[in-house]
Write a protein that binds this DNA or RNA. Structure first.
Length: 419
RNA sequence: GUGGAUAUAGUUCAACUGGUUAGAGCGCCGGACUGUGGCUCCGGAGGUUGGGGGUUCGAGUCCCCUUAUCCACCCCA
């Protein structure tokens, strides 16, 4: 085996692509029910879009981007996340000028240079959705509901929604200041990672898994929230209760992207390992302006399909059976092959799932193959049949077979199929 | 970026403290049924033991390097 797929990438093979297609179809159906339209943006963008959008203090930008210089000497980055490109596209095409509200979703590959692990790939597929233009708490809830009910529709159980609010540019700085004051004297007692986070994004220190228990008396965001943020958060919670989405407040939930304001959330599964977040997101009221648009609120999420599939499999969710083959054309001899080709094609053009023998195997092997494909009928064209001008139709379920003149074969088949 | 584990037929796994020709289940191909599937029985093909180097009379087994995978940290989807 000379070549292998690059580290952290994987192939979706014919045996598993039906599972992917199933998940994707559920997602698209659900997104459309919620009134979201698909948006497709390029797989790469100008590097600066992410540096500015995602934020230059984030791990994504600091160490995880696939960045290269193209032949035109431009710095290009394979998109590590979906939100900045979506906002860029909305602004570039002035979509928010016609109707000041956009509801879009995407289903697309993302790239991050990380050490691979269960549920973490260098190329992974995200389902994400964004509502840009609405500051209403109902928008937050729509986005959360889309994610939550999609996961539920896929049969996933053991889901937990964690919810927090991060405040806004009016109230967060005061909290941040208080938190820094609180943490500073403790630094020598904290792990090296906490010290690192402290200088970069102090709010993240509270998220530490090692030292978390030391922060029981830390100042909390809700004491500093301005009345507007407080009201917004309360409203989000009320609506979630109304529509029956259970959630748990998690004051330690901060999330790693710089642009989040107010609502932050995450859906985790108990059927995954350490990488247990199926999806996460939040409100980003400053991002559009940051990327050169008019001040415009937004909220959205991203979620990982590889993790959906992992969790579904770990949980034993049954996937739909692959579509069974309608007809397998078994042939013996050159004349039979020619007639088989013709019949197979005519049936296909009429919408039947039809296969013909391509390996020149014995009749036994061909029928076995038909059985493997779970074919409903085998149409046998052997030397005897050709001589007699007929085809033998073998019913694989009923174990019976009949002879039909070649001239009326296709008509006869399509006629019975209709009944 | 850090730490630990692993790498043997298509696949899942064997091979006692280094010792003759590296085995088995499933899958694949064929036969019993000279042109007919799912069951059964019989037979067959398929491996430069991830790659490279070293120790040894002898390496799948021990050592080093390398690549990849898995698990965890970090972080996130």
């Amino acid at each position: 085996m000379k070549f292998q797929a690059s580290k952290g990438t994987s192939d979706v093979l014919p045996g598993e692509s039906p599972d992917w297609q199933y998940v994707e179809s559920v997602i698209r159906r659900q997104a459309e029910r919620f009134g979201f339209k698909e948006i497709r943006t390029p797989i790469f963008e100008e590097t600066a879009l992410f540096v500015k959008g995602t934020g230059d203090t984030t791990d994504i930008v600091q160490k995880e981007m696939y960045t290269f210089t193209d032949k035109g000497n431009r710095s290009i980055t394979l998109r590590p996340e979906g939100t900045p490109p979506v906002v860029r596209a909305l602004l570039e095409h002035n979509l928010l000028k016609e109707i000041p509200l956009a509801k879009v979703y995407y289903l697309a590959p993302m790239f991050r240079y990380e050490r691979p692990q269960a549920g973490r790939m260098r190329q992974h597929t995200q389902f994400g959705a964004e509502i840009v233009g609405s500051a209403a708490p109902q928008a937050d809830v729509e986005v959360i509901a889309l994610l939550f009910f999609t996961l539920q529709e896929l049969g996933l159980a053991g889901l937990k929604l964690r919810l927090n609010t991060l405040g806004c540019p009016k109230c967060r700085p005061q909290y941040r200041e208080k938190l820094v004051e609180y943490l500073k004297p403790k630094l020598s007692d904290l792990c090296e990672f906490c010290n690192e986070r402290f200088s970069r994004n102090p709010l993240r220190v509270l998220d530490c898994k090692i030292d978390q228990h030391k922060f029981d008396d830390a100042p909390e965001m809700d004491q500093f929230l301005c009345p507007e943020c407080k009201g917004h958060f309360q409203s989000v919670q009320n609506d979630l209760k109304t529509i029956g989405i259970p959630f748990a407040l998690d004051k330690k939930l901060v999330r790693g992207l710089d642009y989040y304001t107010r609502t932050a959330f995450e859906v985790v599964s108990e059927h995954l390992g350490a990488q247990d977040a199926l999806g996460g997101g939040g409100r980003y009221d400053g991002l559009v302006e940051e990327l050169g648009g008019d001040p415009t609120p937004g909220v959205g999420f991203g979620s990982g399909l590889e993790r959906y599939l992992l969790a579904m499999k770990n949980q034993g969710v049954k996937f739909p059976e692959v579509k069974r083959t309608d007809y397998f054309i078994a042939t013996l001899g050159n004349e039979a092959k020619a007639r088989g080709m013709e019949i197979c094609t005519r049936l296909r053009l009429k919408g039947c799932l039809c296969e013909q023998e391509l390996l020149d195997r014995s009749l036994k092997a061909q029928v076995r193959e038909a059985n493997r494909l779970n074919a409903r009928y085998v149409i046998i064209l052997g030397e005897d049949e050709i001589k007699k001008g007929v085809a033998t139709i073998k019913d694989m379920d009923g174990h019976s077979q009949t002879e039909v003149p070649l001239g009326e074969l296709v008509e006869k088949i399509l006629g019975t199929a209709k009944q």
